[in-house]
Nucleic acid binder design. Sequence first.
DNA 1: GATAATTGTTAGCCAAGGCTAAACTGTTTG
DNA 2: CAAACAGTTTAGCCTTGGCTAACAATTATC
Lengths: 158, 158
Amino acid sequence: MSDHQQRRTSPPSGHSGDALPPVEQHAQQYETVRNAHETELIEDYVELIGDLIRHRGEARAADIANRMAVSQATVSKMIRRLNELGLVTSKPYRSLFLTEEGQKMAETSRARHDIVLHFLRALGVDDSTARIDAEGMEHHVSDKTLTIMQRFTEQQIK
Amino acid sequence: MSDHQQRRTSPPSGHSGDALPPVEQHAQQYETVRNAHETELIEDYVELIGDLIRHRGEARAADIANRMAVSQATVSKMIRRLNELGLVTSKPYRSLFLTEEGQKMAETSRARHDIVLHFLRALGVDDSTARIDAEGMEHHVSDKTLTIMQRFTEQQIK
DNA sequence: GATAATTGTTAGCCAAGGCTAAACTGTTTG
DNA sequence: CAAACAGTTTAGCCTTGGCTAACAATTATC
Ligand SMILES: [Mn+2]
Ligand SMILES: [Mn+2]
Ligand SMILES: [Mn+2]
Ligand SMILES: [Mn+2]
């Protein structure tokens, strides 16, 4: 008698929940998430730099490190990357500036972040929870959903 | 005349938008996101393995690779990690099983995933967009927000 | 203006999560 | 039952994004 298991057992007929999506669609879900992960940290840096400039007049590495709860070395390394990507300009030991492209990204990210944050609040989530959730969710919300969120928030306010 | 810039310039008085949150709160936003990133891939694997077992009777590495759009080598390596974490059991060249702990995680992840997906649909997002957004958002939605989403979905259905 | 404190950089380490190429095992088929 | 095929594993490579420790530059203080 063989100890091999059958290669394809039939699904236990009475299983609950939705069916699995077709392979291609399922694959696209994960791919989209992986792509978002590649850009999200960049976006958060650029957005924060923009916010610091707007609210404080300048963006310094030490402030970024404090606000992100990350070492200064990590920030320094990331700034080099942002530089290479053409998003910020920086001279050694001086504060940071956004390039045209960086400003555009900062603006877009901030707008999206705000929509998600305001949506969560309109939904009834308390401010500090909303801020935490928005920081992560923002990178995974499609433009379509963003539009719907914005409409919802406006409805609630009226 | 010195070419030094002033170290602290005052904020351009007429800046738009919300104020920056206090440093500690701001830091916590980013920390929470970083923590979520450490577990989210693990959760997706475990959840998918659970789904494959439920819907297909077994979970094989090749199926995971196809559904995740990732190489088999990547899956193989990840399975070793899941093993070390005590989430799955596996014999070489055989299909996968979830441990007690793995089953618990699969169940929790699936429940959370479903709440987010159903919420997005209730909000008016089309199915395929909702699926993509939910796959990323789920890992960044707090329990508090999850509860609110669930209530919202139930309201819409009634 | 010398010294102390703060801020920024560099070097070198690590883990996670991708990949390709090559080897190996299990299953199916002629 | 041997060969071909499909599935799995391993080795080795790469990038990202963390860290610490040591050093360098700037700014503040006496
Ligand atoms: Mn943001
Ligand atoms: Mn963010
Ligand atoms: Mn999921
Ligand atoms: Mn997911």
